[in-house]
Nucleic acid binder design. Structure first.
Lengths: 351, 351
DNA sequence: AGGTACTGTGGGAGCGCTCCCACAAGTGAT
DNA sequence: ATCACTTGTGGGAGCGCTCCCACAGTACCT
């Protein structure tokens, strides 16, 4: 059955040519059938498919990649250390969405961590070698060189949060502005009058948009915006603590806090407790992300949910379209694509 | 600078041939330099390296894969739904070890989930297409067809827990037998006399070995093994509850429980509490895995730690060696490799 | 002087595909 | 009957490498 201990070569994997011979057609025709070209007669297609089945033919990806100049793979680049990837549900939700969008595709997903400098260097090599057809970029900081590198190399890419209002890359984002409005309107609706906001890192575009939403929601409800109720944070717990301390000092009469992340809210909560404020009786608290923290907090935290899984799906769909546009068939569409998905307020006991 | 809107082709990525021309040598010589062959003179090597640097040459992986019949990639196959992958620290630890072993290699790691039938089918296609040089297999059930498929396809593979005492695949395991002994000897040392054992799924080889370790530890300490103190579980929390209930009924006088996993121990703990037994005063409890659960349990759980990260590293090293052995150079080593790494008892308040 | 061995090098052949040109056969308008 | 398409098909060329054979050059024995 097996060839007597010969080197490895020709282990017997059938090639296109062999399938063609078997089906009594030419190589080109088999290729057309494999790739689902419509310009093949029904009879021929059936014959080829039979031959493929009989021989157990599986296309050689390397040969295809070389000839067609593509890899049939995209990368999900996570510019964070692995630890965060595993601890934050953000990534696993995202991954699920990406996986779903890819599931009836031939595309392969590579997961690439680029947390350390070393890893980033590897990544650069990787991209320079064009080992993927496209890149999915999540949670990129404003000054990250990665996006530019990608456009330089002309590798299609989709980013999960635009870096600014005029992001050049195709992007998918949740409605940070609207989400913030939802949160603040909710607080107003509950009769809160003095609503503070602990922001995220303001070099992140999404954090800016949340501030905008906060402001506009107050204004439209006829409230005046008190700048001293806005305190910058950095998405972290410590940042939340510091900001809350500052706010309490400046505006001890506040009766609600909208924090730009659940983690920030957790920090704020500690300080509020220490100051003897009851939640939600004295101060209502709303977070952002609807993470596990929100559910497990005491009391459970009202939070703005982002549709992360859908974002993953949307990003992937957009990327696949861009990759397809690059192929030699190519009726280029090329309009700039920015997609924004709606958020949802999850009400819990903290507000 | 850029070519006027020509199709994509020849975007200008330099080829081996161009490097050769630039360095004034032949194609073969450049290939030798790139691949670190020793049969190149110092002067030539320097000239080639200069040319490579000047042109920014990056090898085309597809061409290399086609010509050399290899992919420079290995897969970590996780036969579990993604959810578990993210929730259980086991996988993230494993991944870190694998990453470390790969970090100064050209090898690329693919993460493949094979939880659903659909995913498994994709995986089968994937392997049939020989898209990876080798496979790392973690947490495989006894009746899984995957290992056999791999040997059929002659794809090097390393498995994380042997399926039986005479596993044919190269395997890496932690010392389940020794770990169980550590746990039981510890309990004996603390003066416990009636030590029960809730096993894991007994179709898992490692679970059997833990039972063996439990038995031998008792015997060697001069205790008699009471078979009614051994109750089968299945690594789950519910299994732990059920087993504990059975044990409490049969042997109400027990003063210690060794559970085959932390999750099992958590289930047992609930039942013990409900029965009014204090931990550790009335009943000492020891788990296995040293997972997050163990640290956060009330009281914190003594547990057997497996060196998972090191296991990942060891598996990868072994796999890389096997892959190398398959290459046309090949001074075949081929001894069967089974590796067992030591465990460590982490003592906490529960015992 | 011839033989033998090694070292370093060039380049042909070929890996298994895709792309595309060429062309046969059919279809309908002129 | 001629021309102009369309549809389906075969197969050459070429993607960028690795492998390996051939061979020049040098070194060291007989």
């Amino acid at each position: 059955m097996a060839s007597h201990g010969v080197r490895g070569r020709s282990g017997g994997r059938p090639t296109l040519e062999e399938v063609a011979a078997r089906a009594g057609v030419g190589r080109g025709t088999v290729s057309r059938v494999i790739n689902g070209s419509p310009r093949v007669s029904e009879a021929t297609r059936a014959a080829v498919e039979a031959a493929v089945a009989e021989l157990g033919y599986v296309p050689n990806t390397a040969a295809r990649a070389l000839a067609a100049n593509r890899t049939d793979a995209i990368a999900l680049v996570v510019p964070e250390p692995e630890t965060r990837f595993f601890t934050e549900p953000y990534f696993s939700d995202m991954l699920r969405g990406v996986g779903a969008a890819l599931s009836d595709t031939e595309m392969q997903l590579l997961l690439i961590f680029a947390g350390s400098d070393r890893e980033r260097q590897r990544l650069a090599q990787y991209l320079a070698a064009h080992r993927v057809d496209g890149v999915l970029l999540v949670s990129v900081h404003a000054d990250d060189p990665l996006p530019d590198m990608l456009s330089q190399l002309e590798i299609p890419a989709v980013i999960s949060g635009p870096r600014s209002a005029d992001e050049t890359l195709t992007s998918v984002d949740s409605d940070n502005y609207g989400g913030a409005r939802q949160a603040v309107e909710h607080l107003i609706g509950r009769g809160r009058r003095t609503i503070a906001h602990i922001t995220g890192r303001l070099d992140v575009y999404g954090a800016q948009r949340r501030v905008d939403g906060y402001r506009d929601a107050l204004r439209e409800a006829g409230h005046e915006v008190d700048e001293l109720l806005i305190e910058p944070g950095d998405f972290s717990e410590g940042g939340g603590r510091r900001a809350m301390e500052a706010l309490l000092e400046r505006r001890p009469g506040l009766d609600a806090v909208f924090a730009a992340s659940d983690v920030t809210a957790a920090g704020a909560r500690q300080v509020l407790r220490e100051a003897g404020r009851r939640i939600p009786d004295d101060v209502a608290l709303v977070g952002y992300d609807d993470s596990a923290i929100a559910r497990h907090m005491e009391p459970p935290l009202t939070s703005v949910r982002q549709p992360i899984e859908e974002m993953g799906r949307a990003m992937t769909d957009l990327l696949l379209r861009e990759v397809a546009d690059r192929r030699p068939s190519a009726t280029r569409e090329l309009e700039r694509r920015q997609m924004v998905l709606a958020t949802e307020l999850v009400e819990r006991a903290s507000s």
